[in-house]
Design a protein around this nucleic acid. Sequence first.
DNA 1: AAGCGACGCAACCGCGGAACG
DNA 2: CCGTTCCGCGGTTGCGTCGCT
Length: 340
Amino acid sequence: MGRSPCCDKVGLKKGPWTPEEDQKLLAYIEEHGCGSWRGLPAKAGLQRCGKSCRLRWTNYLRPDIKRGKFSLQEEQTIIQLHALLGNRWSAIATHLPKRTDNEIKNYWNTHLKKRLAKMGIDPVTHKPKSDALLSGTGTDAHQSKNAANLSHMAQWESARLEAEARLVRESKLRTFQHRLGRPTIASSASAAQLVLKSPWNSVSNAGFGDLESPKSTLTSSENGIGPSPMPLAEFTGTASASSETGIIKQEGEHEWKGLGLSNNSLLFTDPTSIHEIGNAMEDGFINLLLNDSTDPSLSDSGKDSDGNSGGSDYHCEDNKNYWNSILDLVNSSPSDSPMF
DNA sequence: AAGCGACGCAACCGCGGAACG
DNA sequence: CCGTTCCGCGGTTGCGTCGCT
């Protein structure tokens, strides 16, 4: 249908932004808000296209951006959400207060992806590389059915998170504009508690008894009150090299150490335990789908910190724990942070 | 001290889809 | 319903910085 360019290519500046340009953009947005990006540059006196202005604002100038090193908890959150969502950086960003999707994407590509690769984990599938190869050979009908179910649930969860992300963004925008004295169109989502449920919520009594429903409760940031992000993992910092596991830890990297699941935290017993992530991503769902899962001891809250109950149950437990931790993660409100 | 490659981050590009007339 | 415009997302690139030789 023919698409006009986002801006006239001639006469528009490209490349790094100067402090003067930043100041102009900031001043304009503080004055008028960021309504139409297309018309903004001309009004703000900038020789840039609207796209460039939007990018500069969202990735750099926004006052609610935290810059600098990612915390361990943030790293863990990114990895877990990436396992769930894939390269949906904007959705991931909504669960990381004050981080932009671009920053998360860059951090993933430059740090986390390499780190997982070093640990023998496919950063795309979050499965151990050997398993990733094997997974393509499965011909069993039962297995493929389970995989389809897994995929289906993951798709729903993904779609739900995207919807959440949109609502959070809208809420943040309204908050900012409200603070600028320009209240925008009222939305039913504003200041309201939003509850989005995944479809399998409704079948929890028919086989997902112990699976904490991936229900999200979003509270608008306008009230400025919200629960603190739950701790997700426990790390112990170390700069030592681990020749046994083949993992070379660099300065600033951390050994992922844990003791099982405790108080909504996913804990790894050793660096190799992260290999369980891949299995958990697939097997966790499959187990949940296949098992009766009515054992109340499988719920997060009652989980023993030992986690080494042994035998095949051990894998099963870990997988459930892993998936529950991800669901817990996405259940935590992304809007708990004071955005402005 | 200079050269060179690796790395990290900011910014750009193209596409998909929502919104609107 | 269709065509057009605009926004936002994800992938990619380019350039500055750092560290090694």
